[in-house]
């Protein structure tokens, strides 16, 4: 590992956090505008995070500290494997299975940290989040499998690069049903309505975040920011043709996030088993049809 790479990694970490926090601020602004409010300034999330880190915090035991550190580190490490522009990744490799499984170390860390706080609300939130993961991972995996079976490569950079040369090559055109399924799954992935069972402030007191205060809450905010970067980036690389420059990448990410925020604003929440059923029935069947058509009938692929 060269020193240039380490510098890249540090620089990119700030980039992820800045992009993610800006998106969060803009997301609140979008919601506010849709509700005919002025809304907070776009940099509100930065203020929130700085304030959180300036407060005192409580931790119940060493596992809580460890879990949250592991959570943010896991997601940042995942982001290092995300191709940004022209298939370039800070870590120099982008196997999609690595991304999908490395992401879960973030979720595991978060789950572990908040479970260690000993609050049943937190654990109920985690049990919902894991159950929901059962719902969205399967459709998402099916779409990725469809792409791999066409392309013969499970590297995300290769998938992004294969869509170069105009909008007609984008996977959103080539895998329309797959995109629909992925969009539904994506909504559940970032935990926006109608799949915000995990947070559900009115039911389980914001679920996993119930015992987090001060810098732990700040870390949870950063976690969400990096998660937004990774998951919107996944959508951009899988469906929206990747990007040739970093600002094009961020622009496309914002389009994905904007769509999801609009959906978030107009929907209410499902019950947890309804949510999973909905994901399996709709996202699952779209993805399954796409997979079978692509793999066995060679339709939609080229």
């Amino acid at each position: 590992m060269s020193s240039k790479m380490i510098l890249d990694l540090f620089g990119m970490t700030f980039f992820y956090i800045v992009v993610g926090l800006t998106f969060m601020g803009l997301g609140r602004k979008i919601t506010a505008r849709l509700q005919r409010r002025v809304g907070p300034p776009w940099y509100q999330s930065f203020l929130d995070v700085f304030k959180c880190f300036s407060k005192t915090s409580i931790s119940h035991n060493y596992i809580m500290d460890l879990g949250l550190i592991m959570a943010l580190a896991g997601l940042i490490a995942t982001a290092y494997f995300m191709p940004v522009a022209k298939g370039w990744t800070p870590a120099g490799s982008s196997s999609i299975v690595v991304i999908l499984y490395l992401m879960t170390i973030g979720y595991l860390g978060m789950a572990m940290g908040v479970s260690a706080s000993g609050n049943p609300n937190a654990t109920i939130g985690i049990s919902r989040a894991l159950a929901l993961m059962f719902g969205y991972e399967i459709p998402f995996a099916m779409i990725i499998l469809a792409m791999i079976s066409v392309l013969g490569s499970s590297s995300l950079s290769d998938i992004a690069m294969s869509q170069a040369g105009g909008i007609q090559n984008w996977n959103i055109i080539r895998f329309p049903l797959g995109f629909l399924a992925a969009e539904i799954a994506f909504q559940a992935m970032i935990g926006e309505k109608p799949y915000d069972h995990m947070i559900a402030p009115a039911e389980i007191a914001s679920g996993p975040m119930v015992e987090l205060g001060g810098k732990f809450l700040g870390i949870a905010f950063l976690l969400h920011a990096v998660q937004l970067f990774v998951e919107t980036g996944l959508m951009v690389n899988l469906f929206l043709g990747g990007a040739s420059t970093w600002y094009e990448f961020v622009g496309k990410q914002f389009v994905v996030y904007f769509t999801s925020m609009v959906i978030n604003t107009v929907f209410a929440r499902y019950r947890i088993e309804q949510g999973i059923k909905h994901l399996w029935v709709w996202a699952g069947s779209f993805a399954a049809i796409q997979l079978v058509l692509t793999r066995y009938f060679d339709i939609f692929s080229r």
Binding site: A77, A91, I219
Partner: peptide, 30 residues
Amino acid sequence: TSSINTVLIGSVFGIAIFFVLVLYLIGGRT
């Protein structure tokens, strides 16, 4: 369909942990 370098994954994860640890230590008192 692709290859992995486990040492790379491990060290990248290590760098991320280092970054977060710094962040954790500059935060307020616990």
